[in-house]
Every structure is written in C-alpha cells, then in structure tokens.
Design a protein around this nucleic acid. Structure first.
Length: 448
RNA sequence: GUUCCCAUCGUCUAGAGGCCUAGGACACCAGGUUUUCAUCCUGGUAACCGGGGUUCGAAUCCCCGUGGGAACGCCA
C-alpha cells in the first residue's frame, strides 16, 4: 500500500519535478521477488492517481531489467570492485553476533573479499568491495553535508544467491541510466546513500543530487504504523477525505512557505521551493486534516459533490439538486460536512420519510414539548395555500405561535426541529421547511 | 551496542544574531451573532529541552549533556 509517509515523499518529488519543468517518473522497485505482487503495485498506482500525481511515461519495473543489472555486476566482478561470497547464513549470523559482542556494528567479516582459492561449489552472493578507509560525504539538499566513515560500511550484497540484484544496486544503476537528477526520499535512507555513492564511484557514474526529508510519526512520536489507525492513502479515501485535503495536509508536513496554509496543486506545480523543507520529523494530525477537508468540501460545487458521492461513496444526493429549495439545503449541509461520508446521515431526513431519529434528544425535547402550540402551528400551516407555503412564512408562523402562547421561540422551535429532522443539529429551520414543503412538514409535525 | 539524523505552543509551523514582549494555522477555552447544532466574528490559554561558551546582543552560531528518531538484511 501507499502509506502517508510514502505519499508525502511522492508529493514532494512530484511538485519539485513539476515546478522545475522536469519529468516525474515512476519506478517500481520490486526486486524482492518473494514479496512483490502486482496487486500491491496496483494499489500504489491507484493511490497515486487519486492524489492526482500523474507521472510521465510508463512506470518502470525493475524486475524487467534484471539482465541489465546482472551485466553491471559482471563488470564489477571483472574489474575487481565486487566479489563472490560463499558464507552461509549461519556463518554470517555468528559474525554479526561476534561484532555486536565486541561493541561494534554487526557486519560481515569480509572473509571472501580477497579469496583466491578454488571456487567452492554451492550458492554464493556477490558483495561490493567497499573501500576500507576514507570518508564519503553526502551533499544533502535538506540536511547539508553528512559525512560517513567508509569503515562503517559493510561489504553489502549486490546480487543474491537466487541471481536477483538488491535494492541498493538496482537504484544506482537506474538512477544513472534514467538520468535522474534529484533523488528525494525519506531520511530513513540517509544511511543507504553513502553505499550508493560508493557504488557509483566504483562504476564511474555521475552522482545525482540527494535530498532526505524527515519522517512522519504517529501521535506518540513513534514511527507511523498500523496501530496508529489509518496509514494507507486508500483508507483516507474510504473515510471520506478529498484528495485536495490529503495533498494539502501532507505537503505542509515538513514543508512550509511563510504563514500560508492553503495550497492548490496548480500553485505548487509552479512553485515548490525545496528550501521550505524542514529537517525535523513531524506528527500527522487528524484534526487539521478534518479542517482542511471541510474547507475543500465547501469549495466544491453541488454538482461535483453529488457526482463524487455517487461514484466513490455510493450515496445518491441527486434529489437535492432538483429544486431551488433543496439546493439551498444541500448548500447548508455542505457547510457542515467534515467528511464525504457525513452527507448520507446529514441528508437522510430529507431523502427518506422513515429516517433515523436521535432518540436521546427526541425524547428529551418531546417530553416538555408544548402540545397545544404544535397543534396550533399545524392548523396555521395547513391553512396556507400550497402555492404560498414558504420556509420564511412557515418559520414566521412558528414565531407568531410561540409569541401568542407566551412561549420563548426555542420552546417551540426545538420540538419542531426534532419532529422534522430527527435531530437538534440541523440547518436553519427556514431552509428545512422550504426544502421539505408543506405536505411533508405537516405530516411530520402531526406525528407528535 | 555502533553510526547517522533531529529538538520553537498539545499538533503543523514562521523565525537565516538585534524587527521576538517569539508570529500564523489546527485543536482547546470564553464572549458575541443565531430559532438549535454548526458556521461566522471577537478575544484568550499555550512553546524556544538543559548547561556551558562566542558576541555589545542568541530561539537563531559552537560544544557538551539529555531526549527522540533512523539505519546497521540474500527488505526496500
């Protein structure tokens, strides 16, 4: 799945590429043939499309380029910058245990690095002959220069015993072959970067620019994981968030431009200064996402909302588009919807006559409801000719009735609201009445 | 454990030595508007991790400490 961290990285890459007039290319790093599945890739592509991160050209799958990587491995073997290693898993485990016991980093002990004897039979991997001395500096666009001592870096595996190349090797080959100018990724990769630079140097490649963005953490400041609730982009779509909100929320995580909070996709495509990236990790906040989502829902036309609700959330609000009065109601609902999934509950009382009621508030309000006032109101409403019944007029009658019977307006308005909508939290009564119309309003009022 | 990264309100952040009595947004609280809830308007609470330097002056630069994160795989 594409989780929010990955999505944020993709967003930074996308806007950086677009704002620079560059190309944004999607590469599927599926070299772990045991674990990669097309359905996972499909979900990622689906999430990218939903966010509106359109990529240039066809995605490149690394599994289709294995021959290319193997050629490079052969070359390195031939020029002595890589070597075969026959160490077994058990041997490597004990090497690491030994190193740890000595207070060192768990590493391979390089026992086959200079091996010149006869090649043992049995499986082997190919390892990179990492320089034993010196330092490697990552000139990071976000973190600045980061220096690594080469002796900290293992003779890592570049070709597995099943003949599949590893991530650190394939990305190096591809970054160069695909002429990648900027590599922007999570800072969990910062430690990989010197390995990749060393490989590039060994193969005589030009080093691209790197930028490592800080991670996104859960509310407990731990690495974001499933126990923090929704982490997949598709979860958020299901929960009723708009791609605009997601994009806006994610782009402001670890990046800013002065005090600006609202950013549109087109604006970011024109201008996305990398200098706006911060260097400390950030916590993803649902409350802020909610706020943004309400903001973007309000910006949508009723037609767009209706189409989106039908397509993605299987909710049909087209009856609300039908008349002037129901459109006014739709507009009022749009103001209060935080998530797209809120609409069906918000509009239910209008769409169905057997709508669900909020039992608690109904009971409470109706217990003290002024029966005679409700009846008087019903009589007044029914006396109005159908063609002259309006929300404004019907609401005026509520006020009149209340005043005449020496009631405070809310004493009558509250029960009316509950009877009409089943809840105390509904839009303006004038709008409700106008949308409902005389017949339905009366029907509900008489259900005392 | 080792290496690397990071450290401003609860959260996202502004801040590139004097403009900082530390600004904005979300959340929260209070008041106002309103026929309810919400919206909307007004106001409020709330932060520079600690200690040393450097400097006339430090949230900003340096060092140490502390805390957090990441990496150390025949995962990516």
């Amino acid at each position: 799945m594409l989780h929010v961290g990955g999505a944020r990285t993709a967003i930074f890459n996308y806007f950086f590429a677009r704002s620079q007039g560059g190309r944004f290319i999607l590469r599927i790093e599926d070299t772990d043939t045991e674990r990669s599945k097309q359905e996972y890739t499909d979900e990622i592509l689906d999430s990218m499309k939903w966010l509106g991160l359109d990529w240039d050209a066809e995605p490149i799958y690394q599994t289709q380029r294995f021959d290319i990587y193997r050629d490079y491995v052969r070359k390195m073997l031939a020029d002595g910058t890589a070597y075969k290693c026959w160490a077994t898993a058990e041997e490597i485990d004990s090497m690491r245990a030994k190193a740890t016991a000595e207070g060192k980093k768990p590493m391979y002990d390089r026992r086959y690095r200079d091996y010149t004897g006869a090649e043992p039979s049995g499986p082997y991997v190919v390892r990179f002959k990492t320089p034993l001395t010196g330092t490697t500096v990552v000139h990071d666009l976000i973190k600045g220069d980061v220096t690594f001592s080469n002796e900290e870096i293992d003779d890592f595996v570049i070709l597995r015993s099943n003949d599949a190349p590893t991530y650190n090797f394939t990305v190096v080959v591809d970054d160069v072959e695909m002429k990648i100018t900027h590599v922007i990724r999570g800072d969990d990769h910062l430690n990989n970067t010197p390995k990749q630079i060393l490989l590039m140097q060994a193969m005589g490649f030009k080093i691209p620019n790197y930028g490592h963005v800080p991670m996104i953490l859960g509310a407990d400041k731990m690495k974001l994981s499933k126990r923090h609730g929704a982490v997949a982009v598709t979860n958020y779509r299901e929960e009723g968030y708009l791609p605009e909100s997601m994009l806006n929320a994610l782009v402001r995580l670890g990046w800013s431009k002065g005090d600006q909070e609202i950013f549109s996709k087109s604006e970011l495509c024109k201008d996305f200064p990398l200098a706006g990236c911060g260097s400390s990790p950030s916590v993803f906040d649902r409350a802020k996402l909610d706020h943004l989502n309400n903001h973007y829902i309000r910006e949508k036309s009723l037609e767009d909302l209706c189409a989106l609700l039908k397509k993605t959330y299987l909710v049909d609000l087209s009856p609300l588009l039908a008349s002037e009065s129901s459109r006014k109601l739709f507009e009022a609902l749009r103001e209060r919807a935080v998530r797209m999934t809120d609409f069906s509950a918000l509009a239910e009382w209008y769409l169905r006559n057997d709508f669900a009621r909020d039992e608690a508030s109904t009971k409470e309000v109706m217990a003290t409801a002024p029966r005679e006032a409700l009846e008087a109101l019903a009589t007044k409403w029914s006396a109005v000719p159908d063609s002259e019944f309006s929300g404004v007029k019907a609401f005026e009658m509520i006020k009149e009735t209340a005043t005449t019977l020496k009631l405070k307006i809310p004493q009558l308005a509250k029960p009316v609201r509950v009877l009409l909508t089943g809840t105390l939290a509904s839009p303006d009564l004038g709008i409700v009445l106008e949308a409902l119309g005389k017949t339905r309003a009366l029907e509900r009022l008489r259900k005392v």
